[in-house]
Design a protein around this nucleic acid. Sequence first.
DNA 1: CTGAAAGCGCTTACAG
DNA 2: CTGAAAGCGCTTACAG
Lengths: 340, 340
Amino acid sequence: MGSRSSVARPAGAVTLADVARRVGVSARTVSRVVNDEGGCTPETRDHILTAIAELGYRPNLMARGLIRRRSDTIGLVAAEILNPFFPEVAAGVQAAAASIGRTMFLVSTDSDRIKQQRALTSLLGHGVDGVIVFPAKGSDDDLVRFAADGLPIVVVNHEIEAPGLAVVTAEIQRGATLAVDHLVRRGRTRVAMLTDRDPRPPRRPSRRELGYRASLQQAGAPDLIVEVDNSMAGGRAGAEALLGHERRPDAIFAYNDVIAIGALQHLVTRGLAVPDDIAVVGFDDIAMCEAVTPHLTSVRIDRDLLGRTSVEALQNLVGACGEPIAPRRLSVELVVRESS
Amino acid sequence: MGSRSSVARPAGAVTLADVARRVGVSARTVSRVVNDEGGCTPETRDHILTAIAELGYRPNLMARGLIRRRSDTIGLVAAEILNPFFPEVAAGVQAAAASIGRTMFLVSTDSDRIKQQRALTSLLGHGVDGVIVFPAKGSDDDLVRFAADGLPIVVVNHEIEAPGLAVVTAEIQRGATLAVDHLVRRGRTRVAMLTDRDPRPPRRPSRRELGYRASLQQAGAPDLIVEVDNSMAGGRAGAEALLGHERRPDAIFAYNDVIAIGALQHLVTRGLAVPDDIAVVGFDDIAMCEAVTPHLTSVRIDRDLLGRTSVEALQNLVGACGEPIAPRRLSVELVVRESS
DNA sequence: CTGAAAGCGCTTACAG
DNA sequence: CTGAAAGCGCTTACAG
């Protein structure tokens, strides 16, 4: 039919030019119809629309992106896809993105700095309009560099400052305070914390640790922090370690729900009563909190709001060329359940 | 420095031409270095590499993809990102893809046919080399059409046949049989099934239902299938419905672990002993199975293998232009835990 | 070992 | 209302 042999292109790659040729108009006119620019006879429009349907034409988004310098896509770079918190946030981000006509592509980094570099490079190279990232540990420099290279980045749940970067976070430290204060009010005097191991040598206290320490200090109670792997198995190992401690704790505050649930499981398996012998409180309030026995007390972050706010921040960032965007900080809430 | 004003392009968009100009060579030579084609003086190469680093050049992957007709990226289209089974498979797919130098982009569809169409359109338009999809319900026609349009598609966990489509699945029916046979062997005589609601009018029995029915028929036991929402809440509602049934079941086989865990929770809340009063068996063997009390018996699919096999199938599909790929069927395994 | 030219599929000024 | 031309940033034959 066309002047080209079908060998020249893989099957199905119908182009704008093919449509134009079929109808007998120029590519410009077809482009006008495809992009709904108006200014075109209804008949011409109809012919073109028919040809598009018959030929099964789909615009090549790479070619379009090359010129338009925007693709209406955003990337979501998540540290750990296996922690249910991230899929839950991803659902919020995807919904928010879809509501303003953006497609979201998710890439997981396993909290690995190198994998995060690859993800950002690929996303940037493929022309996403921007990315929302839950950063891998120790990757601040990378984020600053990518932002300087022109990639609009919204950093979630991590404090960092640089031009081209926007921050969306939550009252993490206050969340920890809420959790520990609650345990203290319930009469717990030996509240231990299970925190996630930090691979970098100079260990910096997380905001959760700061809140934990501040609360205990105010209560005049001793603190005890144990580092564990960021997983259910880590939680189990941490609980075991705490049980063997000289002054066995009567409450555990965990870095997140996954660790808390691992600890909870281990305590139950060891025959301890939760919360009577030991109370447990997690962080994130993932759906699983209501699926374990006893139901897990946790600090809730509104995930839909987090998603919407991040997408909003990214839109502002893409719009405001270079101007700094004020950080957004979402409130948190303690959800008390049976485990405390 | 260059002849162009910085207003012409967004900050950071350094091009191959910029590098070439800086070094004083042609774009062709820079391209050669970037792509490691060899055939180039060590000095020239060094100069170019230095300029690339200084300028912070990153290849525009859209421009490259336009010509190469491949991007070394694949799409993973998942029905429900909130069911932990999918993130677990996604991790397997991403690992397998990374091991052969492919970047994976994940898009969730919420099992919505329209969202799946959008996801496939976007992925195809942006030039992914192929997609692995856990299909939304009732989307067979769409998959066939996209495959016909030249998008290599690997369909996971769903039986479908069409040119350009490869299928990777598991012994789902056998898994159901294993689960129900196990319950029967343990003396259960009234095994009910909680299955996921089908939005389409003509309800087709799933492979899990077929296995369930076959096992019970062979045992001479009655069956009872209740449709529920595919969620923990659905599992709770289903359990409640079964408790009110005239012949209260002594075992529940659920469509998946999420539904099973919802049911389990409800039973425990209602004060029933699991498994003494009612046994519960799930499907997928997500990590959560070992986090609930009692630990959930489930049918296991090897997720890493599923990921690797899917990526392999996609590679074959991209290679074999149009030739049919034999379906792959993974084996399953019953993991017996406390709930049965 | 290196370069000039054409072109991937599209959009964007600019004319008519 | 419609079209011819240029060009996004890169790679691919083809020469030298």
